[in-house]
């Protein structure tokens, strides 16, 4: 090793040993994926919120359930989670009501179950990929650290062949190894922040859905 080494970024990455490069590649992929999910979730949660707002306003504004259900059937594509929960409950309620032998409690139970099932599905969709973000946030620093430790081991192994050890002999190896840690942290920090943010958002949405389900059950119960 030569003291006047090129310490810019690209030579450091291309000059790293194979395991370190593998770790870097893995981290880059993970980081790309996690950022993709971050943006995907951001858009999805924002959309779910705005759709819920719009539907709640429509629902409490003029509670003509049959018309709301007809609107949903007309624009199935644009429907939000809350609207789907409402539609599942209402359609089940209407179907059960048609059977004259059912008593009111059984009808309510059926509508409730239908809403709960849809609610579970919606929450599952909203929470999808969040576990990936959590995993990236907790694991990728360790993966980066593994690459760094490997790189530093190599750097010190190379040092053993040199009689007079100077900082210039180890510095490039350590610098290239530390890039792995930097990449791990770069992948982990946004993932952790995004996970916490989105976990709060989805739990708030979930409580909003649940309270809507309770209120809607009451509305259904008042139906003749």
């Amino acid at each position: 090793m030569d003291a006047t080494q090129n310490l810019s970024l690209m030579p450091l990455i291309s000059g790293a040993s194979l395991p370190v490069q593998l770790v870097m590649g893995l981290l880059l992929m993970v980081s790309l994926l996690s950022w993709w999910f971050i943006f995907l979730k951001m858009f999805a949660i924002r959309q779910a919120k705005s759709q819920s707002d719009v539907f709640e306003e429509a629902f409490w504004g003029h509670p003509d359930l049959a018309r709301l259900y007809k609107d949903f059937l007309d624009e199935r594509e644009a429907a939000g989670s809350l609207e789907r929960i409402f539609a599942a409950g209402y359609s089940e309620f209407v179907k059960l009501k048609k059977k004259s032998d059912m008593d009111n409690a059984a009808v309510m139970d059926g509508a409730r179950r239908a809403m709960r099932a849809t609610y579970q599905r919606e929450m599952d969709d909203l929470e999808s990929h969040l576990s990936f973000l959590a995993t990236v946030g907790s694991v990728s620093p360790y993966v980066g650290l593994l690459g760094t430790v490997w790189g530093i081991m190599n750097a010190f192994r190379g040092l053993s062949n040199v009689g007079q050890a100077t900082l210039a002999h180890v510095a490039p190896g350590i610098a290239e190894a530390l890039i792995a840690t930097a990449m791990g942290l770069f992948a982990a920090i946004p993932a952790v922040v995004a996970y916490n943010r989105y976990a709060t958002d989805t739990s708030r949405l979930s409580s909003r859905f649940e309270s809507f389900m309770e209120e809607f059950s009451n509305v259904l119960q008042r139906q003749p």
């Binding site: 980081s31 790309l32 971050i38 995907l40 989670s81 599905r121 969709d125």
Partner: peptide
Amino acid sequence: SAAVSSEPYKLSAGALALLVH
């Protein structure tokens, strides 16, 4: 259903992720 609704964002999300990197 939610996955369907977030479908149009897949491309823009990917582009944004690449942009960040």
